[in-house]
């Protein structure tokens, strides 16, 4: 198991190196010089050159790559062109909203999806199952910004249980902050929970038709015991895969919901960075997200091995 973890960790490190080279190369080759863009159309070549120098855009590619990658490793992400503050600070600020929001939404989605999927699988073909399948279909189909606005209308405007948007920060304690994140988390969790419930249902149905479930029943386990003792863990592999994908998506993919609720999260920061050609911000954020995705994949891999002993030997 330890060897498995080490080998996965090695592959994680290699993936990061490859990803950093690719990201750096892509950003370098796309047209649009940040210096001339920032200075406008009337800038003199001398002024542009001076700004380029100031921004660290001169020097050979390898030198710039190592400076950038080395900075990343030490937490120095460079200075934003547009905000004139260290990118690390910007990211940290935004991460304190986006990360809790993603975890909150993921927790909600998992907590809803598991029991729902389990019930649907256990009562396959019943009215309950059809009801759940219909509801999850709807959950996937409804655009989440529309659902978010509905939540605002009902719970913020009419019932006044929550505020309609904004974020009070964590300084005032966790409760007000979590409260502000609740509606956005629900809006984010709805389609994710719907997908996850369907995956859980189909994985369980597949598992419950396996021979070893029949063996368990022949040993005297009730249908429920066979499902919980032998079915659930075997059905986990596809479910873990989806959870991993969903977390990566939630971290940066919440941009529309962040806009609906006026939350200054990572999604909005990327969007602003792109529109303002703030390449340092974009580069750093993309790298950070790649890191997050690879890290989640690593954790999911480890979880696979915990769940299924057959995967432990394969390195």
């Amino acid at each position: 198991m330890l060897r498995f973890a080490l080998s996965r960790a090695l592959s994680l490190a290699l993936s990061l190196v490859v990803a950093s080279v690719v990201i750096f190369a892509v950003i370098e080759v796309i047209p649009g010089d940040p210096a001339s863009y920032m200075l406008g159309l009337n800038a003199t070549p001398e002024a542009v050159a001076a700004l380029r120098d100031q921004l660290g855009l001169t020097g050979s590619l390898p030198v710039r790559y190592f400076a950038w990658a080395g900075g990343m490793l030490t937490g120095d992400f460079g200075i934003s062109y547009t905000y004139k503050v260290p990118v690390a600070d910007l990211v940290a600020q935004r991460l304190w909203i986006s990360l809790p929001l993603a975890l909150y939404a993921l927790a909600l989605s998992t907590l809803i999806a598991f029991p729902v999927g389990l019930i649907a699988a256990a009562r396959r073909g019943s009215v309950t199952d059809y009801g759940i399948m219909g509801a999850t279909q709807l959950g996937i189909a409804v655009p989440n910004f529309w659902f978010a606005m509905l939540l605002v209308l009902v719970f913020a405007v009419n019932l006044r249980w929550f505020s309609a948007g904004g974020f009070p920060g964590w300084e005032g304690g966790p409760l007000p902050a979590l409260k502000a994140l609740t509606l956005p988390a629900i809006a984010l969790a709805l389609p994710q929970a719907s997908i996850l419930a369907r995956v859980t249902r189909s994985a369980l149905i597949e598992t419950l038709s396996q021979d070893y479930i029949r063996t368990a029943r022949a040993k005297g386990l009730s249908r429920r015991q066979a499902t919980t003792r032998h079915g659930l863990r075997n059905a986990m592999i596809p479910v873990l895969t989806i959870i991993g994908l969903q977390f990566s998506f939630l971290l940066a993919g919440a941009i529309i919901i962040e806009n609906v609720f006026f939350l200054p999260g990572l999604g909005r920061l990327i969007f602003q960075g792109i529109t303002q050609r703030d390449l340092i911000v974009v580069e750093s954020l993309v790298m950070l997200l790649v890191f997050a995705v690879i890290l989640v994949t690593f954790l999911v891999d480890l979880a696979y091995a915990v769940v299924d002993p057959r995967l432990r030997r394969r390195a």
């Binding site: 021979d211 070893y212 063996t215 022949a218 057959r310």
Partner: peptide, 12 residues
């Protein structure tokens, strides 16, 4: 049963 390869729970 007939198929011993699949008759046991692979994760226990």
């Amino acid at each position: 049963f007939q198929e011993p390869m699949t008759a046991l729970n692979p994760v226990k």
